[in-house]
Computed example of a mutant assay.
Amino acid sequence: MTTPPNHALVFGASGIIGWAFVNEILQDYPAPNTFSRVTAFTNRPLSPKISQWPPSDKLHLISNLDLIHTDPTSLSTFLQSHLPDLETVTTVYFCAYIFSPDPAKETALNIHMLRTTVEVVESLCPNFRMLVLPTGVKAYGVHLLTSFPFATHLPLRETHPPLPEPHATQLFYTHQHALLQELSASKKWSYIDLRPDIVVGFVPNNNQHSLAQWLALYLSLYRYIHGRGAVVPFPGTERSWAARAQDSSQDVIARLGVFLSLQPRNEVGGQSFNVADTKVPGTWTGKWAVLCEYFGLVGVGPEEGEGLDPAEFLLQHQAERGEMAREYGLKGGHGTAEDGVSLSHVPSFLMKGFDFDRPLDLGKMHRVWGDGAEERDARGTWWAVFDRYKAAGIIPDFER
Rank of each mutant, 00 (worst) to 15 (best):
W383N: 09
M365K: 09
K364M: 13
L219K: 10
P166Y: 05
T152M: 04
A373S: 12
E293T: 08
H317C: 13
P161I: 06
S74A: 04
Y140F: 15
L211P: 00
A242F: 08
W214D: 12
T116N: 15
P233Q: 10
S190C: 04
T174K: 03
R37W: 12
V258W: 02
G301F: 13
A212R: 04
W369I: 00
S186H: 11
H69P: 01
L154P: 06
S249A: 13
G380C: 02
V231A: 08
H143P: 03
E24D: 12
T169F: 00
S81V: 03
D247C: 08
S14N: 14
N206C: 12
K287C: 15
Q263L: 14
N110W: 11
T381Y: 04
G340P: 05
L83D: 02
G305N: 05
F295I: 02
S56M: 02
C292W: 06
W382I: 04
L109Q: 14
E320Q: 13
A378E: 11
S210G: 06
V368C: 00
I394K: 11
D251R: 14
F356V: 01
R244E: 11
E303R: 09
F398H: 03
C292A: 10
A384K: 02
G299H: 15
V300K: 08
S190M: 05
R358S: 09
M1A: 14
D371E: 15
S47Q: 07
F313P: 05
L83W: 00
H366I: 02
I253M: 13
F202I: 04
A311K: 05
G333A: 08
E327D: 04
P347T: 09
V298G: 00
L360W: 09
E87W: 05
Q271Y: 07
G322L: 08
V231N: 10
H160K: 01
A104S: 13
L79D: 09
S14C: 07
